[in-house]
Amino acid sequence: MDKHDKGYWGEPASEYWELIFPLCEERNIEFVPIDWFELDVWNDFDPFNGFSEEQRKALEKIDDEWFAKQMNTHDVGSIPFNSDAFDEMTKQKYEWLDQINPKAINFRWIVRNQIMIQRVKNTYHSNPGKRILCIVGADHNYIFKEELINEPIELIYPLR
């Protein structure tokens, strides 16, 4: 990994380099990456592809409104973006996006989360009895909870 390539598309993001990797190194904690996306085809699955410029702008405006609705729930719990209210709003947003472009959402959201969740399962299966901290972007929380709640683990979410 290139330590100078930080940011959203310079994966991993800066908080990994500044917070997570140093903590793992300091405490001898194994880091297992779980995120998945393929940058060479990512933009080919933009949910607003195939729409006219006017339609795209209208859809992007609605998408911005969904983001604002999400942000309005950021402080519902004791930890920002870590609540059932945020998760429900986020789930509704992705259901809307699925109505707009199911093929794109399948690739960018559903399959991506399936791969990420399977990597979490592989991690706890290969580390029986150990505590695992799984760090994902807040939009992923609801789907991770839905998929992991019935697993043979103690899932602590929302965080307290």
Rank of each mutant, 00 (worst) to 15 (best):
K3W: 00
K3D: 06
H4F: 00
D5S: 10
D5M: 07
E11N: 00
P12T: 11
S14D: 00
E15D: 10
E15K: 02
E15G: 00
I20P: 03
I20D: 02
E30Q: 10
E30N: 01
V32D: 03
P33V: 05
P33D: 08
D35R: 04
D35L: 04
D35Q: 10
W42E: 01
N43R: 05
F45G: 01
P47V: 07
P47E: 03
F51L: 07
E54A: 09
Q55Y: 06
R56V: 07
R56A: 13
A58V: 06
A58G: 03
L59N: 07
I62K: 06
D63C: 10
W66P: 03
K69H: 10
Q70C: 04
H74A: 11
V76A: 00
V76Q: 04
G77W: 09
S78L: 15
A85Q: 05
Q92N: 04
Q92T: 05
Y94K: 11
I100Q: 10
N101Q: 02
K103H: 12
I105F: 07
N106L: 15
N106K: 02
R108T: 13
W109D: 13
V111T: 14
Y124I: 05
H125N: 11
S126L: 15
N127R: 04
P128H: 07
V136I: 10
H140V: 10
K145P: 02
E147Y: 13
I149Y: 15
I149A: 13
N150D: 12
N150S: 14
I153M: 05
E154S: 01
E154N: 12
E154A: 06
I156T: 02
Y157R: 01
R160K: 15
